[in-house]
Amino acid sequence: MMILNMLPSVLMIVAPILITAIGGMVSEKSGVVNIALEGLMMIGAMSAAAAHVLVEASGMNHTLSLVLAMVIGTGIGGLFSLLHAVAAINLNADQTISGTGINLLASGVTIFASQILFNADRTKEFRMGMQTDALGFYPTAYIALIVVLLSWFVLYKLPFGMHLRACGEHPGAAESVGINVKRIRYIAVLASGMLAGLAGGCVVLTQTIQYTSNTINGRGFIALAAVSFGRWRPAGVAGAALLFGTAQAFAIIANNIPALRVLPTEVFNILPYVVTLIALVLFSGKNYAPAAAGKPYEKGAS
């Protein structure tokens, strides 16, 4: 029963991690590693928070304001991911370096924008975030569910998904049968940016009242871990995100459970990372990652 009572808050924390992880998975499936997820979440969260504050103040309908905020978060997340796409796909840049650059840039840009818009190192507080439904769930839980199902359907049931996976496994072979590798990779990176931006909006509109430099706090990296731990499969990634999100939720709610109070709450914070490390060692014999992930693809080479 207690677990059931916790479910809404667990799902509130799981949803953005899951949405981001699915985006990261799609990008890696196409052959582009995106470690900028953390930064893209920050950008989405900041844009959504700022948009909601400004639109809400203009007196627009509350729900409409929320929807608009999410759309803006999604769009700007996608826009910034294009930087990564150009670097990784057109210029054959080192994907880890360009991802790191976007993460650094995001921590600057988000607070810089807050300083310009609100004269403070955080966005102004919005009056009201998302509301829960009759069952106690935030809409983000349903959004996450849709994203997972959609990713599975597109990747495994549509020709486009098969093409996308081919680009991540053997881009040369894909190109030789007429698949436009660059175009598909662009779409995949853009999808990961938009989903991370959307997830950032989900975080800020359900778990807090404003964007600060601490709002995302490693969630993007947890999502990255979920991609590896979930072995690059929608169901696996969903399971991993659920596990990691639950651990995060425990870190917050363990204080209310006498039996768990003996443990420092940080133990639950550590859990996702340790579990992923152990899993990576245990799975080390077999490589589940897409074969061409992280490698630039040049037409005609190899």
Binding site: S98, L104, A106, S107, V109, F112
Partner: peptide, 16 residues
């Protein structure tokens, strides 16, 4: 934060 932005841009340019 402009300093963080400049640092981030530098890294992105290095990638490029």
């Amino acid at each position: 934060e402009i300093t963080f932005i400049i640092q981030g841009l530098i890294v992105i340019f290095i990638a490029l």
